[in-house]
Design a protein around this nucleic acid. Structure first.
Lengths: 220, 220
DNA sequence: TAGATTGTTAATCGATTAACAATC
DNA sequence: TAGATTGTTAATCGATTAACAATC
């Protein structure tokens, strides 16, 4: 199956639906769910739920709803989460290592996670050869070979902002197609590469907008 | 100044513009910038740049452009980044600690960051009393008092998913108005509270959609 | 059958882009 | 003045919601 031009807004909601279905499947409460209920749990209108799903097929039954297990399995296929993907992380600083632990734990606990972190990369010779959460740290020079050897298509970038663009280009040239970027920098990459920005600074600064402009010091 | 109904999409771009202006101010290359250039550096159309800024005032000069320093200072005011905000972080696990280090470093390096992490909170009695990146860890029981005493309006949540909702409610009841949530859980909170979700799992799963459905194992 | 809920079309809403008069 | 670029209005584009016939 290949779907032409599904909008990014739609794709963004699919993992949310999947999470709801995963929880439901785990609890085993109900074998069926309506677009109404699924919408409520996902924080989305019921019409939008139906429309999103309808892009990919007819998964429901009129008058009945959606079979939880069936829809779950379909969503996993659509998201390519029915098989594992090898992932690497570049930049084994404290954030990188923390994310590595997080990803490894997630992989163990969550059946739908489907992403396997198989290598960390770092400049620092002291870190190379070590391992965090069971994932070895390799030297930057080995990166391209490693990506090709293990068919890595997804990477996480946690290097400083001024190194991010260069690293991203090296990743892409070696075959990486999707990047989760934590560096506070805009990556300029070919259109066939998907980038998700996890720029904490931007998020925090944006939140500050909503803070009432009052005193910051203690009132007492 | 108070602006009624500025859309979230607009607010989201303001920190991006600010970052461009900060870089420009630091390099000192040019005292003026056009909406065209600013747009290019921010990854946004020039018309949209002008429209976004026009919501808040008339900051440019026809035929000339925008004064970098002036626009920068206006944006900082609009985003409430012209004064420091006290921030706490709940959940001093490896991710929490890594984010703490990140925030502290950011605060030292980046003049426009304007957020000061003043406390970590954790359940684990072994962690309470310690400090990471110079920020002390407090017991959960002290949280409400601390928030009120230090007038904390913003918080970062890095606790496990099943604890997130309860923690969020406690934060909000004590006066927190903006939350950056790393827990993979949808927070249900009163409308006056702004939540930014940094749900890594959702981002990674969404990226998997774009991976070509080929073999995951080495081709060799 | 009667009641419920899907898949889909049409209507609405909101955000982005194009265009241009105003003006520096 | 002539050239450039803003601020703003109108046109376009896309995403969400409402409504309903089809059908389980």
């Amino acid at each position: 199956m290949r779907w032409n031009k599904i909008s990014d807004a739609v794709v963004r909601r699919l993992p949310i639906y999947l999470r709801v279905l995963d929880d439901l499947a785990k609890s085993g409460d109900t074998p069926l769910i309506s677009s109404q209920e699924l919408g409520e749990k996902a924080g989305v209108g019921s019409a939008l739920v139906r429309k999103d799903l309808a892009w990919f097929g007819e998964f429901g039954k009129q008058g009945v709803g959606y079979e939880v297990e069936y829809l779950r399995s379909e969503l996993r296929q659509i998201l390519n989460l029915d098989r594992e993907h090898n992932v690497i992380l570049v930049g084994a600083g404290s954030l990188g290592v923390a994310l590595a632990r997080y990803a490894v734990r997630r992989c163990q606990e969550d059946e739908s996670f489907s992403l396997k972190l198989i290598g960390l990369f770092d400049q620092d010779p002291d870190k190379v050869g070590r391992a965090y959460a069971g994932v070895p740290v390799y030297a930057m020079a080995e990166m391209e070979g490693f990506i090709r050897k293990h068919n890595v298509r997804m990477a996480i970038i946690t290097v400083p902002a001024d190194a991010a663009q260069e690293i991203a280009l090296r990743l892409v040239e070696s075959g990486v197609r999707a990047i989760l970027n934590f560096a506070p920098a805009k990556l300029i990459l070919p259109g066939h590469v998907q980038v998700a920005n996890a720029d904490l600074t931007l998020e925090l600064q944006r939140l500050a907008y909503y803070l009432p402009p009052g005193q910051t010091e203690p009132q007492g």
